[in-house]
Nucleic acid binder design. Structure first.
Length: 675
RNA sequence: GCCGGUGUAGCUCAGUGGCAGAGCAACGGUUUCGUAAACCGUAGGUCGUCGGUUCAAUCCCGACCACCGGCUCCA
């Protein structure tokens, strides 16, 4: 299968070309399995579920066993964990302190695996009692296997699979013989925490893939190469969209270059128009706020790890006050007794108050809440929809940073809607409709909607302690989802601390899973800020708040769009929409070309002229390389006929057309945001 | 944050314990051309940073930083 690199990927192609996260394999043969549960560990599957493994998964699972067998032949002291199939292949986790795997080991290991293929060993299933199994592993020091054994519920059969000398705790199923596994390749070495928990030891994970035959394997490897070319980091560099400058600006803080800024501003324009149509009003807020803001919102206890450390300083008058308080403290001397303690404590508290602390905002909601509070509100004002492309800063762990997809400074397509409980369902539904509207514009037809709910066991720890409100809002959201016929997966324990949320997830070219849109309910924070509106009955009530960001952040959304379009943006988004190329640099020709450029610029088209002496083939190659959407080639013939030769990026020469017609076409395509 | 890898010109990459290299891009010139590269020349570097070993370090050692592949975490 060859992907036309000039078309957006469809999701079915996506599945072919992108690796998807390892844990998502679970959903493939476990209908309705919560994704989140799988996130923490490779979830145990019942034997029935195992039987659903398809042919390719069996093959890959068997390849994993062969990998482990080969590793044990080469490093007999390796401890085994598990080796499941994944969407793109398989892996096996090892604990092997005596040796660090590196890609240089791959040829040896693959050679050993090929021997096992040649030996054509049968995969034989057998059963052991729990005691027998325990003895088997403990005598071999296989401590991870012993823990895995303990996961198997009492009463369930404990099955083993053996091929040749290799025996593994395994529910199967497998292919018949190792001779069936011929087309495989080791891909990468990585580390993984045992059971995915960062408190557990780190194991060495070997990734590989296997296919039914060599041809399919080669085909897949080729597609992987193609996919790499869509990597937004690479295209962003090549097209001059954005840059990172870790030394002077800081890691994870992108600089938007002029061409990337075009993308940012086109998206903003789209959002402004869409939100205006949906009855939003726009606001603007600063990038930081005092500590009190986040103490009140409750973010500090729940979210401080993700925030940049505070900016601390003393105002001039604070410095004076500090001196006075310190003087008072020393005047107290070294006393004792409850009165002394009380006075000391009071002064110490005052002393702490002489330092002002500001935090860079990690989210826009508190600022918007203060805008709500800035004026008295009546039920007649609701729903109030405050929108802002607000800049936020989050201190992501260094290992998490990933191009534009995961950054420390980001601008969110944010809005907060304050509404009454009666208005909630229609507001929430309108947000979902807005998602779909956007997805249609970008040709995004497959994605995963995740409905994240709270875990009752973690109320007061990870989630605000309001059991009744949690239940009510979650029921409300669920009902809206069902009513609007949206497919979704429900994910317990993934909600925001202040309420349930819906996330829209997509997969990047490299197969990483990213949330690009989010829609969250907040029943807690407005109350913490004391937000109220005067209702019909003249009583004060707290509004519900919906946080929504259908385009997520500029950074991630554009990162995603770059990969989605492979940098071949539709005309309305293209950083350079049109380039006028002259065949030669004769003065009359250049004059005609300049006039055309001026005409298009007059319509605010992003157009450049290439009037130099380079040959036309060279100019075309440059324009194609720069992914210029529309090329207008002009020679003597075109000039004389007041026409242009139209060429579209990736599509080649379209033919000669009247100048006015082409200009009108271009304007029409931009205005309608045509795909 | 953790495990592993990598760091040489704007980009893609060679290379060596003893004067730092290529292609493309840039710049200067020649060329006047019909749908994916005309030709010649010039310039470009504290070899990620700091420290150590050495007569001598881009190369060997160490620390740090950044990036890459994962894990964990998230928009």
């Amino acid at each position: 299968m060859i992907i036309d690199s000039f078309l957006p990927l469809r999701f079915d192609q996506l599945q072919w070309t992108r690796s998807r996260p390892q844990h998502s394999l679970i959903t493939d043969f476990m209908e309705n399995a919560p994704l989140a549960a799988a996130k923490t560990d490779v979830q145990r599957k019942s034997l029935d579920q195992r039987e659903l493994m398809n042919e390719l998964q069996r093959l890959r699972h068997s390849a994993a066993h062969m990998l482990a067998a080969a590793v044990l032949r080469l490093w007999p002291d390796a401890l085994l964990d598990i080796g499941p199939p994944t969407d793109e292949g398989f892996y096996y986790d090892f604990d092997l302190p005596s040796h660090r795997f590196s890609p240089e080991d791959f040829p040896r290991i693959e050679e050993e695996m090929r021997k096992i293929t040649k030996e054509n060993q049968a995969f034989e299933k057998s059963f052991k009692s729990r005691d027998e199994a325990l003895t088997w592993f403990s005598s071999r020091g296989q401590k991870f296997k012993m823990e895995r054994l303990a996961d198997i519920p009492e009463g369930e059969a404990i099955s083993f699979f053996q091929n040749g000398e290799f025996v593994d705790l395994c529910a199967g199923p497998h292919v018949m013989r190792t001779g069936n596994v011929k087309a495989f390749k080791l891909l990468k070495v990585a580390s993984a925490y045992f059971r995915g928990n960062e408190k557990n030891p780190q194991l060495q994970r070997l990734y590989g893939t296997a296919f039914k035959n060599k041809e399919e394997l080669e085909n897949w490897l080729h597609l992987q190469e193609e996919a790499k070319k869509r990597d937004h980091r690479r295209i962003g560099q090549e097209m001059g969209l954005f840059a990172f400058d870790a030394e002077y600006v800081g890691p994870g803080l992108p600089l938007w270059l002029p061409k990337g800024t075009v993308l940012v501003e086109e998206l903003e324009q789209l959002a402004r128009e869409t939100e205006f149509d949906a009855g939003y009003v726009r606001v603007r807020t600063p990038h930081l706020a005092r500590e009190k803001m986040y103490k009140t919102s409750g973010h500090l206890p729940y979210y401080a790890d993700s925030m940049f450390p505070p900016i601390e300083f003393q105002e001039d008058e604070d410095r004076q006050r500090e001196l006075e308080i310190r003087a008072a403290l020393s005047a107290l001397g070294n006393g004792s007794g409850p009165e002394f303690e009380a006075e000391t404590g009071r002064l110490q508290a005052q002393l702490a108050g002489t330092t002002t602390r500001y935090y860079l905002k990690a989210m826009n909601c508190p600022h918007h809440h203060r805008i709500f509070a800035a004026e008295p509100r009546s039920y007649r004002d609701l729903p109030l929809r405050l929108a802002e492309y607000g800049m936020c800063y989050r201190y992501e762990q260094s290992g998490e940073l990933f191009g534009l997809m995961r950054v420390r400074g980001m601008q969110m397509n944010d809005a907060h809607m304050y509404c009454t409980p009666e208005q909630f369902a229609s507001e929430f539904r309108a947000v979902n409709d807005m998602y779909l509207k956007y997805f249609k514009i970008f040709g995004l037809d497959r994605y995963v909607m995740r409905f994240s709910t709270h875990d009752p066991a973690r109320l007061g720890v990870k989630f605000v302690n309001e059991p009744e409100l949690w239940k009510q809002t979650e029921d409300m959201v669920r009902q809206v989802l069902i009513d609007s016929g949206i497919n979704y997966v429900e994910v317990p324990n993934e909600a925001a601390f202040y309420g349930p949320k819906i996330d829209v997830q997509v997969y990047s070219t490299i197969g990483r899973e990213f949330t690009i849109a989010t829609n969250q309910v907040d029943f807690a924070v407005p109350r913490r800020f004391g937000l109220v509106y005067k209702d019909r009955d003249n009583t004060e009530k707290t509004p519900l708040c919906i946080h929504r960001a259908p385009l997520g952040t500029h950074e991630r959304f554009i990162g995603f769009l770059i990969e989605h379009y492979a940098g071949n943006f539709p005309l309305w988004l293209a950083p350079e929409q049109v380039r006028v190329l002259t065949i030669g640099d004769e003065v009359p020709l250049v004059d005609y070309a300049r006039a055309l450029v001026q005409e298009l610029r007059g319509h605010r088209v992003r157009v450049e002229g290439d009037y130099g002496t380079t040959k036309i083939n060279g100019k075309i190659q440059n324009a194609e390389k720069d992914k210029v959407h529309t090329m207008l080639v002009i020679g003597g013939r075109e000039k004389d006929a007041d026409s242009v030769a139209l060429r579209l990026h990736g599509k080649g020469n379209v033919g000669v057309k009247p100048r006015a017609e082409v200009v009108a076409q271009i304007l029409q395509s931009i205005r309608t945001r045509a795909a």
